[in-house]
């Protein structure tokens, strides 16, 4: 029983990271109707940015082997700055890989290919400059206290529920980000503008919404979310190399379809569902854990293609 509860809490923790990562995907999809396949690469970049901003040394064998920034920022500042840098990269991607296609009204499939190409460039640039080695965050990123107490007991002495402290912190941070984001989307002018563009870009621009600015902001936000979630995952495990984000990129796809493509609440729900489903995989089948996301994706597409929260798809003649 305690093991089950332990898995559930772990599932919530990883699920909250999936949720903020997938939100970045779904925001872009709701505005442009395309899937940004470079999102996983931005996730990877965010983890690298933060690693270097806190003063981490490159122990990879790339061109910048042994490089290190002359200063080290405190982690809370670094994760936000790292996320912001990832957001800027994402804006750059929009300019280079999406805008020319959008300007021409090209087939959305081509945006898929150009974003894949952009992701390939980022991943290989990282490999070239940094190297393919594993980079690990120092154990004290979340402060001295968290280092002293690597796991917490959320239950009682007789009924222990042991959780890694990192997971609890990640869960807290993700929840704060989720709430801030929901506020931004539902309560601010920019959020309303985003919803308007998602609903109908032409009408929105007639009503005085600057579509281009909304799109740029969406990419900035999406990159920021990817960068922060990349950093959070990296503090829990480590950066496994330039391909770190690939698996998360694919799982993120499963998450947004699970909830309903382009649906904000759906992405959050999907993230938690996937996190919990993965956590509940019995110990002897852990090797199959990576297939859970895709099994869920396949099932939902068969049974309810519009996703758990999505509106019914109406086919227009």
């Amino acid at each position: 029983m305690d093991l089950l509860l332990q898995s559930l809490v772990n599932g919530l923790s990883i699920g909250s990271v999936y949720a903020i990562f997938a939100l970045g995907y779904t925001l872009v999809f709701s505005i442009l109707g395309i899937i940004n396949f470079a999102h996983g690469a931005v996730f990877t970049l965010g983890a690298y940015f933060t690693y270097f901003l806190i003063g981490g040394q490159n122990n990879g064998t790339g061109l910048l082997a042994g490089a290190q920034l002359p200063f080290g920022l405190p982690f809370p500042v670094a994760i936000i700055l790292g996320g912001a840098l990832a957001g800027l990269v994402s804006v750059g991607l929009e300019r280079v890989a999406f805008r020319p296609l959008r300007a021409r009204g090209a087939d959305p499939l081509l945006a898929l290919v150009s974003s894949l190409g952009a992701g390939l460039v980022i991943v290989n640039l990282v490999q070239y400059l940094i190297g393919a080695e594993i980079l690990s965050y120092p154990t004290n990123v979340y402060g001295h206290w968290a280092e002293q107490h690597p796991s917490l007991n959320l239950g009682t002495a007789s009924f222990p529920i042991q959780i890694r402290t990192v997971q609890v912190i990640i869960f807290g941070v993700s929840l704060v980000i989720l709430l801030a984001l929901l506020y931004l989307i539902n309560r601010t002018k920019m959020g309303k503008a985003m919803q308007a563009v998602a609903e109908n870009p032409t009408t929105a621009s007639l009503l005085g919404v600057s579509t281009d600015r909304v799109i740029l902001f969406t990419f900035l936000l999406s990159g920021l979310l990817a960068g922060i979630s990349g950093t959070l995952v990296a503090t829990s495990f480590s950066i496994s190399g330039p391909y770190f984000g690939l698996a998360y990129g694919l799982k993120g796809l499963a998450v947004i379809v699970l909830g309903g493509l382009g649906d904000i609440g759906g992405a959050v729900l999907g993230g938690f569902v996937l996190g919990l489903a993965e956590a509940l995989v019995p110990g002897e089948y852990t090797a199959y854990k990576d297939a859970v996301a895709f099994l869920l994706l396949f099932l939902i597409l068969m049974l309810r293609p519009q996703g758990l929260l999505g509106r019914r798809l109406i086919q227009k003649v």
Binding site: P100, L101, V113, S114, L116, G117, G119, L120, N124
Partner: peptide, 9 residues
Amino acid sequence: GLLLMLAAI
């Protein structure tokens, strides 16, 4: 990767 991107565009 760059060529893939440019070809798509």
